[in-house]
Amino acid sequence: MNTRTQTYVDRALAVAGLVALWQLAASLSWVDQLLIGSPMGIAAYLRENLFGDGILLVDFGWTMLGTLAAFALGTLAAIATGVLFVISPRMERAFEPILAAVNSMPRIALAPLFLIWFGLGLASKVAIGFSLCYFIVLSGTVAGGRSVSQDHSVLAVTLGASPWRKFIHFTLPTAVPTIFAGLRLGLVYSLLGVVGGEIIASEHGLGQQLSLLSSQFNTNGVLGILLLLALTGAGINGLMNVLENALLRWR
């Protein structure tokens, strides 16, 4: 058995051991199930609501729709702003204090304002996710744009490359890895922002279900949705890794 396979086996055994201990503690009432739920109860909840009546599938669809919309809008705006700042440092110096002040505001505190502006529907959740994604991707874009080797910049100028060709052939390829690091975090934080907005006030979504289940003291339901969100986040991160490796194969 090679090292990689051994690692997967060890991880599976560790998870299985923890789940077995959790189920034993719940079954023997070592800890009240109202506090920790039980693996079997979580599995039953997910089976009924995912594959039974499909309620969670609908809410999952709403959450992912808001996440993808927030990520797409936040990424486009952030990359456009980042490229502008890299090309024009004067513009960055002018807007940096404003953006820093806005970025320092807690998004959950701004959620009621977004609800007033955009209502209880999907738009307010997209706005919260956008506000988180935008600044993360913007930071990665600016850092990537500034990471180009000074020797390459001098070489490009010496060879008579125009600013546009210099950007396409030198700055952008160098910046892509750093930008992707920001994109990976931006997508995860878009999900967090959308779910957070749904918890506060929403008509649909996993966050709305979390709020409802917690008010009913349904621990298994709350933990089931948290497990679903954790698996979704891990899947998003894995997908971004595959995409990054495919696009950066040339490196």
Rank of each mutant, 00 (worst) to 15 (best):
F167C: 01
V137L: 07
V157S: 10
F135I: 11
V148L: 14
S153K: 08
A127S: 07
F167A: 08
S139I: 09
S147A: 15
Q150D: 15
H152N: 12
I128S: 04
G145H: 04
A143K: 06
S147C: 13
A127P: 01
L155A: 12
D151N: 14
Y134D: 06
T158E: 04
Y134L: 15
V154I: 13
L172F: 04
L159M: 10
V157R: 11
F170G: 00
T171W: 05
G129A: 10
V148M: 12
V154R: 11
S149T: 15
V126F: 08
A161P: 00
V126Y: 03
G140H: 04
G129D: 09
G144A: 09
A123V: 09
S147V: 08
K125E: 10
F170V: 07
V142W: 00
A161G: 07
H152A: 13
T171M: 09
G140Q: 02
K166I: 02
V137D: 04
R146K: 15
V142I: 11
L159V: 01
V154P: 05
V142Q: 00
T141G: 03
V148R: 09
W164M: 13
F167P: 00
V148Q: 12
F167Q: 02
F135A: 03
T171I: 15
F135P: 01
V154D: 14
Q150R: 15
H169A: 12
V126M: 08
K166Y: 12
A161H: 06
A143R: 08
S147I: 06
I128W: 03
G121I: 04
H169G: 07
S153A: 13
K166C: 09
S147Q: 13
S162H: 01
F167T: 00
T171L: 12
A143P: 01
I136H: 06
R146E: 11
S153R: 12
L172S: 01
I136C: 05
T171E: 09
T141E: 04
A143L: 07
R165P: 01
V142Y: 00
G144C: 10
V137S: 07
S124F: 06
V148G: 10
S147Y: 12
F170P: 00
L159E: 03
W164F: 13
G121T: 05
G121M: 07
V126G: 03
R165I: 04
S124W: 09
V126E: 07
D151W: 14
G140V: 05
A156C: 05
G140L: 03
V126C: 06
S162A: 04
S139A: 15
Q150V: 15
W164R: 14
R146I: 04
V137C: 10
S149P: 08
V157I: 08
I168A: 11
D151L: 15
L155G: 08
H152D: 14
